[in-house]
Structure formats: structure tokens, C-alpha cells
Design a protein around this nucleic acid. Structure first.
Length: 184
DNA sequence: GCTGCGATTGTCT
DNA sequence: GACAATCGCAGCG
């Protein structure tokens, strides 16, 4: 099994190259993860877990290897992988990937044929992940995290996107080739 | 290709 | 009652 115990900003870059796969009614869809962000707990003002446990962020306090799915801007689902030991809230937001399977299903879910998985809301929609899957385990079941061969690319480290606190933490990690081609 | 803005609703103060 | 870990489209060059 994948070791998801450790500091989130150390684990996050190691998830680049891993595969996130879902198997629902329509069929299997899978991406290789190429863009992530780390979110910690009490030491990270940008984290949902910063002010303690609430109804929404519960999964962040649970065991690693599970999903934390939250609704963003009232209309998008965003998917995180919970890391760290239980009780130390941390998660890694999956921001982007490259499609390796099920592209026709993804196009149908997205209702378009370009910019399919280049953002956290888009990626969740592409894989069919919604609030129904909040807290789901990634070892077995319809959603799985699979260790992949390391990407043979440089990893860029940048500040996180779309937040208003702790904007200087360099906790966004991108596999280099993706940053130039914002398409997919 | 890039920039700017409005949509839309659950969650927390 | 304010705000949010975003997205898609219009408008411009």
C-alpha cells in the first residue's frame, strides 16, 4: 500500500505520477495526477481544518487513504486525498491530471471536448466524483489510488492557487510539462 | 492568447 | 450575512 503518512507538503509531490481511477456505471475512467496542492491543519491558515473540526472537514481528521470531497463556490466538487495519521488533519488537493482511460466518458460528463481535467472541479467532474464519495476509501471500491511509475519530468513548486490566506506557502506541485500546455 | 467578471449555494461567524 | 482550495464565457488584441 502507498505510504500516506507524513507531512502533506512532502507527500504531495510524491503523488505526481500516481493514477486516480473510478469505475462507475458508465465505465472506467483514469487519470495520471500531474498537479497537486498540500493542505495542513492548525499550522496552515488556508486549510479547511485550520479552525478545528467541523461537519464539512471531518474526513480530513480521519485515516489517510480516503477521499475528502467538498463543494466549492456552491457548484463544483473538489477532491482531496487524506494523508497523515488520524487526528492530524491534512489533505492533498488533486488539481490536474492527464487522461489515460475513458476519455469518451469524460467528454460526456464534462459536456465538452477540451480543457477536460485542468482544474480541481473539472477533474472531479471528469471522474464522476461528487459529495456522495466524501470519505470513501481509496484501497478498494469504485475509486482507487494506484501507485504509478514516477513521471520522468521536473517538478515545479509554486504557491497555491485561489486562496486568500498563507498565499506564500510553496505547497503547489506541478509536473513540468503540464504548465506549458494548459490544454490536455 | 489573455483578462475580467458573474454564477450559485453550503458552511461558518 | 459574508465568503469561498472555481469555471466558463465574453470581449479584446
Amino acid at each position: 500500500m502507498i505510504d500516506l503518512v507524513g507531512l502533506p507538503h512532502e507527500i504531495a509531490p510524491r503523488l505526481l505520477g500516481f493514477r486516480l481511477r473510478t469505475e462507475f456505471e458508465e465505465g472506467a475512467t483514469e487519470v495520471v495526477i500531474t498537479e497537486v496542492e498540500a493542505y495542513s491543519g492548525g499550522d496552515d491558515p488556508a486549510s479547511h481544518a485550520f479552525s478545528g473540526r467541523t461537519a464539512r472537514n471531518g474526513p480530513m481528521f480521519g485515516p489517510p487513504g480516503h477521499l475528502y470531497v467538498y463543494r466549492s463556490y456552491g457548484m463544483h466538487w473538489c477532491s482531496n486525498i487524506v494523508v497523515n495519521p488520524p487526528g492530524q488533519p491534512s489533505a492533498v488537493l488533486i488539481r490536474g491530471g492527464e487522461i489515460t482511460e475513458g476519455i469518451d466518458i469524460i467528454k460526456q460528463r464534462r459536456g465538452r471536448s477540451d480543457n477536460l481535467v485542468d482544474g480541481p472541479g473539472k477533474l472531479s467532474q471528469a471522474l464522476g466524483i461528487t459529495g456522495d464519495h466524501d470519505g470513501a476509501g481509496l484501497d478498494s471500491g469504485p475509486i482507487r489510488l494506484i501507485a504509478g511509475s514516477p513521471l520522468n519530468r521536473p517538478i515545479l513548486t509554486t504557491p497555491r492557487i485561489g486562496i486568500s490566506k498563507a498565499v506564500d506557502y510553496p505547497w503547489r506541485f506541478v509536473a513540468a510539462a503540464e504548465i506549458a500546455t494548459s490544454g490536455n
